[in-house]
Nucleic acid binder design. Structure first.
Lengths: 158, 158
DNA sequence: TCAAATTCATTCGTATGCAAATGATATCAA
DNA sequence: TTGATATCATTTGCATACGAATGAATTTGA
């Protein structure tokens, strides 16, 4: 809609100049934000197909607790890039399912210390191999060399 | 937690072997899903800093309507990679703000045809240059060559 | 032609995701 | 020591996201 589909060469250069505020070359499909969102969507679909037990954020929380042991809810949020309000919801749902447990820190009563339960530990140990497969499947369209490149470049803008 | 932080060389090889179900080398930070999520987070933060008027999904809807003109709500969802339930919410909020308008298709009464209002048209024409800047800022850590590579590889897994 | 299958939109329920405000606790600094 | 500042967790409000179920309208195929 924005404008008729004409080639630059067929248009008066002065008019092209005057219209530059809305470039012809802005297409949603070519924007990094849109492509990131689509790549993420595909990854989430692969995740859901292989792990129906947990959502990706829930998996991330359990995996990180498995990695670092008991931590404060806030610190956990920092480690998995989740803000305080979001991590609270995730942890509460995991607690409701008996996968994590938490309690106040004795010395610093501001801290809510979170840890895996035995069930949570068993669950994450079972799921980590599946998660590794999810990573592989997500990257399956790429060669080993391309995977390295993509991870390196994505890391730069993350 | 999962296991003590010891170097492989200090561990009985047989024990290492027996423990392979939960590889030492699974780290959330290195998974494509986690990196994609973080890259997306950074992009969204840049977007919010430059465009406070609209959310990214709202912008996407207006930008696509600007590109293709009047379309059905469902078709719009396909074009911007949004499912029917989600796009409905986005369009309803845009309609409430007078940026889009919609009505039943005369021939095919299943279709809800959506289009920009004059206000919506003016708004998106004003914002598209800002969106182009957002794209640039998101990609600022990369060279021109790296940008091309990243877009190509991301496109493969999107 | 007409019953079955499809398509489109809507609604419901659940789960992020984040800004902003609030209260409790801890730390810092004069 | 104590008032200002900072940190942590919680709550609220709004906006995606998406699976699943539902109803209306259209298309298809025997």
């Amino acid at each position: 809609m924005g404008r008729p589909a004409v080639s630059i060469s067929s248009v008066d250069p002065v008019l092209v100049e005057a219209d530059e505020a809305v470039p012809d070359d802005y297409h949603l499909q070519d924007q990094i934000g849109f492509i990131l969102r689509k790549a993420n969507q595909r990854h989430l679909a692969i995740f859901a197909a292989r792990i129906s037990d947990l959502t990706p954020p829930q998996f991330a929380a359990l995996a990180k607790l498995h990695e670092v042991g008991e931590t404060s809810q806030n610190q956990l949020g920092t480690l998995i890039a989740m803000d305080a309000a979001t991590v609270k919801g995730v942890i509460d749902r995991l607690k409701a399912r008996g996968l994590v447990d938490y309690g106040k820190h004795e010395a610093d009563k501001r801290l809510l210390m979170v840890k895996l339960t035995a069930d949570g530990f068993a669950m994450i140990e079972r799921l980590i191999p599946l998660a590794a497969q999810i990573t592989l499947e997500t990257l399956a369209p790429l060669t080993a060399r391309e995977i390295g490149t993509l991870m390196r470049l994505l890391g730069k803008i993350a």
